[in-house]
Amino acid sequence: MTFGAEFVPLTLPPLVIAVLAALACAAPGNFLLLRGQSMLGDAMSHVVLPGIVTAFLLTGSAAQPVMLAGALAAAAVSSALIEGIRRATGADPGAAMGVTFTAMFALGVLLLETSGAGAVHLDVEHALYGNLEGLIWIDATGWASLADPAALATLPPELPALAIATAAILGALALFWRPLTIATFDEGFANSAGIPTRWISAGVTGLTALAAVAAFSAVGSILTIAMLICPPATARLLTDSLPRQMALSLAIAALSAALGTVIAGYLPLALGLGFSVSASGSIAVLSGIFLGLAATIGPRRRRLAAAP
């Protein structure tokens, strides 16, 4: 068996899916970070679970569009809940988010365990770690399959769905870059300059929800959270330019995803170890290591320390 015959059906699809999910999450993560809303990503990736379970219970289908609709609905409900709690009690946004997403995630687990949904492909482990390794491309026989329409048609459905979501997220951020940047830096001024900051804010929440939803079923909530925050936080420590921060965060996210998938697939085997590791887990760990490195030896860290 050649390398391609094994790599293309078994490793390439998870790798591409992981990279797409990482890009989809890291891009809006830059703005979450700068807006002091890192918790929002955490919230969105958790509330997706009850949405998916409810959608499955209502329709009996685990198809991608059904899951996506359920997750988006849950994200919308949680946004409304967070805003409602904040307004009604005057609570800190972080507190409102914390209450909402833990309660909704718990509800999701409860639904999952008490209903029959757990017996199908939905279970708590998949919710946390995703199912990257399961996203294989059975019909692929080697590199040639990439040019074979019949084989391409059997790609895991997560791949095209994620590709579309990632393109939509990156496109929206590029289109609204200027008003988004201004509103993130100075909301009062942005308002006075005619920028609809409420819509911008809702848009950031919406893009985060879309990223979390699109990434969730493939890579799970842990990797979603890690990718929303770690690559942007790493990039933030490496540069003082927002465009460069965005570019760097995407590069770091893609590198973590690609490297993490390959490490999980081949490293334990190469070392002769008897166990395998989760691809999502190794990607998340890698992104954490990158963040740690940037925080300890990054240039910006030194410059700040040297500043008077």
């Binding site: 700068l34 200027r178 940047t181 201004i182 001024f189 300059a193 003082d240 330019s241």
Partner: peptide
């Protein structure tokens, strides 16, 4: 915030 002085001034040109 990751921005230079000129970036902030250019925000005034948004309209």
């Amino acid at each position: 915030f990751p921005a230079r002085v000129i970036d902030v001034v250019q925000m005034g040109l948004y309209r």
